[in-house]
Design a protein around this nucleic acid. Structure first.
Length: 534
RNA sequence: GAGGCUGUAGCUCAGUCGGUAGAGCAACGGACUUUUAAUCCGUAGGUCUUGGGUUCGAGUCCCAACAGCCUCACCA
């Protein structure tokens, strides 16, 4: 593929793009004019394979190989690599030439400072940025002619010696330049970059180039996900890929996206959870199994919700919710380490500390602590609910307690804190404690009031599961219920699912916390937006 | 789905009481071989999101639509 498209580039008539405003046309025309000049020089404005370059990060690390050569004595003084101020260093030791290794870099031009018969470029790749000095005399007329065709945003290669200018800036002193790719669009403001949130999301490629920390955040997202896979692998878990098209969208209470398969002529749903297929695999003997993948929920969009998001669900045979609590803590501690951050982490104007062990408190303890009300007293609950305009008539006390908990406790859980032992009536798919059937073996992990993880000792009694599916269905809108009868899932449980712990982690929210993002759209490369017109 | 805020040049933003549309960056021409948001001189660049309305006159006031953000609602 690569070799077939590199012959004579097309030269579309710029006037053919008629609908554009004149100013945009003028900016583009200036770039196309330089594109034509490159072609007149016999160069391909769309570039060719470019071998043997080093990353800018690697090149910057070679500062120690650069020496200042004193003009008078000829003495070679190596530059310090301990982040000391190079400008002061040069001022104290100079004047002199610098001498450094031959390097080859490639990247995008993000700043240009032409100064007569020299040009300073700032070249950026995904590891960093470095200054390049192109002097007319130093590179020769041919290279100089090429460099006159450079625009902000172009991708170029540079060969030269690494050195330091007398202002103390690590610089590639170019000996030749290689044109790699023309940009015919104008980049955003060179200082402020893109700030319009809509443009940042629609044109994420520009956001990645021009907004500080955006590329780093998404690379950190990948590191976090790799870390999670690594931790799970070390614990003996296997990763699987379940179906994303479900005939029955079960495993959670959320509205699914509906679609259709033409050949089978059946309705299908995009999955809303990973749970039911992973549990089938538990039945099938995959004793430690997980999926880390996308789920889809046809619901509102907010700073903490995107219609498609990434979920981890892990199931461990012969474990319970406490097993999963330990696992959750390891997953997060390892992920923090993978980002290379020191505790405490910054998150907005807050600080987060994931130093283990995380606090572990029961639901009822926290309820008393934050409300001063005995969670076992139905009268006290109803009175408290009345004060907070929470509907009580005809509702189970646990449901009232649940709403009070959400209203008065959850938002204040700075965390990280494991909340454990939920009222059983709120958790129909969870095993009860053997010593207290009113309590479900479930925990949720809260950080900054956000629910990050949710885990159970999984229900594996097929008869009870079937009964719960049926009771949920009664009197509830089907689209609002998590309990959609799934006969095959019941059949699987009837063959015997070992007792197990199950864990779900909202990966996007975890990444938000670990990368100092307060909107989920900052950690999803292409969040859902209404399509642009035309 | 409800409410609030925002929408002006490629980007970032001003625009007063309703009276001829402004700046910085980017671009174009010129000067400059150690600049770093380079600097200096000059030039050009606009469907003020869209559609209605009020008015002698609307970027500005009113209504509606569209898009984004925020707060709610929905949401294991």
């Amino acid at each position: 593929m690569a070799g077939t498209m590199t012959s004579a580039p097309q030269q579309p008539d710029p006037s053919a793009t008629g609908a554009e405003p004149a100013s945009a046309n003028a900016l583009e025309a200036a770039r196309r004019e330089k594109l034509r000049k490159l072609q007149a020089l016999g160069l391909d404005p769309w570039g060719q394979r470019f071998d043997g370059h080093q990353s800018i990060g690697e090149i910057r690390r070679r500062l120690g190989e650069v020496a200042l050569v004193n003009q008078a004595s000829g003495e070679r003084i190596p530059f310090p690599t301990d982040n000391s101020d190079l400008k002061t260093f040069v001022a104290e030791r100079g004047p002199g030439e610098t001498d450094g290794p031959q390097v080859r870099a490639a990247g995008r031009i993000v700043l240009q400072r032409p100064s007569g018969k020299a040009i300073f470029l700032d070249l950026r790749d995904w590891t960093g940025q470095i200054q390049v000095l192109i002097g007319k005399k130093q590179v020769g007329d041919d290279n100089w002619a090429v460099s006159q065709c450079f625009d902000l945003g172009d991708v170029v290669g540079v060969d030269g010696r690494l050195g330091v200018t007398r202002t103390g800036e690590l610089t590639i002193f170019a000996e030749s330049v290689t044109f790699l790719t023309k940009s015919i669009e104008t980049p955003p403001d060179k200082h402020k970059g893109l700030t319009n949130p809509e443009l940042r999301q629609r044109m994420r490629y520009l956001d990645l180039i021009h907004s500080d920390g955006v590329l780093e955040r998404f690379l950190n997202r990948t590191k976090i996900i790799n870390s999670i896979r690594g931790t799970l692998a070390a614990e003996g878990f296997v990763e699987i890929e379940g179906p994303t098209l479900h005939a029955i969208a079960g495993g959670a209470a959320a509205r699914p996206f509906k679609t259709h398969h033409n050949a089978l002529d059946i309705p299908l749903f995009m999955r809303i959870a990973l749970e039911l297929h992973l549990k089938r695999l538990l039945v099938g003997g995959m004793e430690r199994v997980y999926e880390l993948g996308r789920v889809y929920r046809n619901e509102g969009i907010s700073p903490r919700h995107n219609p498609e998001f990434t979920m981890l669900e892990a199931y461990q045979a012969y474990g319970d919710y406490r097993t999963m609590m330990d696992l959750t803590e390891r997953l997060i501690v390892d992920a923090v380490r993978a980002t290379g951050q020191q505790e405490p982490l910054r998150w907005g104007d807050h600080e987060l500390d994931f130093t283990p062990p995380f606090a572990r408190r029961t639901y009822d303890e926290l309820f008393v602590e934050h409300t001063g009300v005995d969670p076992a007293s139905e009268a006290a609950l109803r009175e408290l609910a009345g004060k907070h305009n929470i509907e009580t008539a005809g509702r189970h006390p646990d449901v009232i307690k649940g709403e009070l908990f959400e209203e008065l406790v959850e938002d204040r859980l700075k965390g990280p804190i494991f909340v454990l032992d939920y009222p059983a009536t709120l958790c129909p798919l969870t095993k009860r404690r053997r010593d207290n059937a009113a309590v479900a073996e479930r925990f949720e992990l809260f950080v900054e009031g956000m629910e990050i993880a949710n885990a159970y000792t999984e229900l594996n009694d097929p008869d009870l599961q079937e009964q719960l599916f049926r009771t949920q269905l009664a009197g509830q809108k089907e689209e609002d219920s998590m309990a959609k009868m799934d006969h095959d899932f019941i059949r699987a449980l009837r063959h015997g699912m070992p007792p197990a712990g199950g864990l779900g982690i909202g990966i996007d929210r975890l990444v938000m916390l670990l990368t100092n993002a307060t909107s989920i759209r900052e950690v999803i490369l292409f969040p859902l937006l209404r399509p642009e017109e035309e």
